[in-house]
């Protein structure tokens, strides 16, 4: 797995959402979580594309669940964050923390 793969902002959010939903992370719940936490309506097209990329980069895996009654007897694809996925989240967070720590807050804005 290529470790130097970059991760975009939306991908990061999605990855975090997957982690937060643990075993219940599938497309609809991810979309709903992001919508309720960030207020952003993420289109399904964008979501599928990002999930596909995350899979390609090796940060997330997916497997089909057993068919459930709530989806009319159809199964859903449950996503999980991989080891590499967690690593990249750490890395991103670390970069941000470092930058946060250096940030000189302007007194003028309170």
């Amino acid at each position: 797995m290529n470790r130097s793969q970059k991760i975009g902002e939306l991908e990061e959010l999605i990855l975090l959402a997957i982690g937060g939903l643990s075993n219940e992370a599938y497309t609809v719940s991810i979309q709903q979580l992001l919508e309720s936490t960030s207020g952003r309506v993420i289109s399904m097209g964008a979501l599928y594309t990002s999930l596909e990329r995350l899979g390609k980069k090796g940060y997330a895996t997916s497997e089909m669940s057993k068919p459930t009654a709530e989806r009319g007897g159809k199964s859903k694809r449950i996503y999980k964050v991989t080891y590499e996925g967690e690593q990249i989240l750490h890395e991103t967070r670390a970069v941000r923390d470092r930058l946060w720590n250096q940030f000189k807050w302007s007194p003028a804005w309170g």
């Binding site: 497309t27 609809v28 979309q31 709903q32 399904m44 709530e70 989806r71 009319g72 159809k74 859903k76």
Partner: peptide, 9 residues
Amino acid sequence: EAESDLDEL
């Protein structure tokens, strides 16, 4: 998937 996802949403 997309069909049932969109229905659910």
